[in-house]
Design a protein around this nucleic acid. Structure first.
Length: 155
DNA sequence: GCCAACGTTGGC
DNA sequence: GCCAACGTTGGC
């Protein structure tokens, strides 16, 4: 089982939005980057855990966790011209983009901000703290996962 | 709002 | 296949 970090702009879709969904479950739409697609299509599995990261906001950072509850399947929002993430080049017979379903696990009592993450030498290899990183889905090592939870819950 | 970083597109 | 132009991401 693997760990991930998944970015979303809270103005578009926040962890509170996920927690408010029926069954606290939703599909993760709009991945339009090949590297991120390959991660979800080829490497993500049911029961993997992911950090929910808020980007492009006053205080960017990790706000909670979620669980992968359905493995990758075609992102139907790419087929619909009325959708934000419509991509005419994605063909239903040969889909270019994929999505997974995720379920809310927990919201942290306080955010683990990007500044907090950058302060920790143990996390210096994380993609999210590296300059110029734009990838919306990145792997997290078991050690990084445990370290960040210890920042939230104490030792 | 600015702009660096980086991915994609398309002319050649 | 190169690379300039363009579009997007996302921290600040």
């Amino acid at each position: 089982m693997r760990y991930w970090l998944m970015k979303s702009e809270p103005d578009v879709y926040s962890i509170d939005d996920l927690a408010a969904e029926p069954d606290q479950t939703a599909y993760w739409e709009g991945i339009r980057n090949y590297q991120a697609r390959n991660f979800i299509r080829d490497d993500m599995a049911v029961n993997d855990l992911a950090f929910f990261y808020h980007s492009r906001c006053d205080v960017p950072g990790i706000v909670g966790t979620m669980r992968i509850v359905r493995e990758a399947y075609p992102d139907h929002t790419a087929f619909d011209a009325s959708e934000t993430y419509f991509d005419p080049k994605s063909d239903p017979d040969n889909p270019r983009w994929f999505m997974v379903d995720i379920k809310f696990e927990r919201k942290f009592s306080h955010i683990v901000s990007l500044a907090d993450l950058k302060r920790e030498p143990a996390l210096s290899q994380m993609k999210v703290v590296q300059r110029g990183n734009r990838l919306s889905i990145t792997p997290v090592s078991p050690d990084e996962w445990a370290f960040i939870l210890s920042m939230v819950d104490g030792e």
